[in-house]
Design a protein around this nucleic acid. Structure first.
Length: 125
DNA sequence: TACAAGCAATAGT
DNA sequence: ACTATTGCTTGTA
């Protein structure tokens, strides 16, 4: 039994710091199934934005973590990217652990071992 | 309201 | 490896 997604969506909509753009980012992120990841670029493109940095900026201030699985977002290079505003450190180790617990194989460097684990919106598995 | 700087990135040189 | 580009957020004037 999982959390009511609708409630989470309403929670997002009610948040004062959440702009329409951020909301798109979070909702798109919720479309990524467990055991899969996505990249900043793909996610940005999916929400109609050409800047992955904008996505990064939105996730950096993600007030819904880990309800919004920001840890399922990696860089196009398959590197871990960042987590909770940190690009390296204990937080990243936490991100790796979370992904590993979801069935996503990560290298000891925090890199994705299998590129096919990347979720492309519309390209089903 | 207007302007400038920065960001968990990516692509191209 | 480095620079340029990208769209959005935040802070300051």
């Amino acid at each position: 039994m999982e959390t009511d997604k609708r409630e989470l969506h309403e929670r997002i909509a009610c948040h004062p710091l959440v702009t329409p753009f951020r909301r798109k980012v979070y909702e798109a992120l919720l479309e990524v199934p467990r055991g899969k990841v996505t990249t900043y670029g793909v996610l940005a493109r999916h929400i109609g934005c050409g800047s992955a940095q904008a996505v990064g900026g939105a996730l950096r201030a993600n007030p819904f973590a880990p309800d919004v699985p920001c840890h399922r977002v990696v860089a196009a290079d398959l590197s871990s990217g960042g987590f909770c505003g940190c690009r390296t450190g204990t937080e990243i180790a936490r991100k790796i652990a979370l992904l590993s617990a979801e069935g996503v194989p990560l290298d000891v460097e925090g890199r994705l071992s299998d590129a096919s684990r990347v979720w492309k919106f519309g390209a089903n598995a």
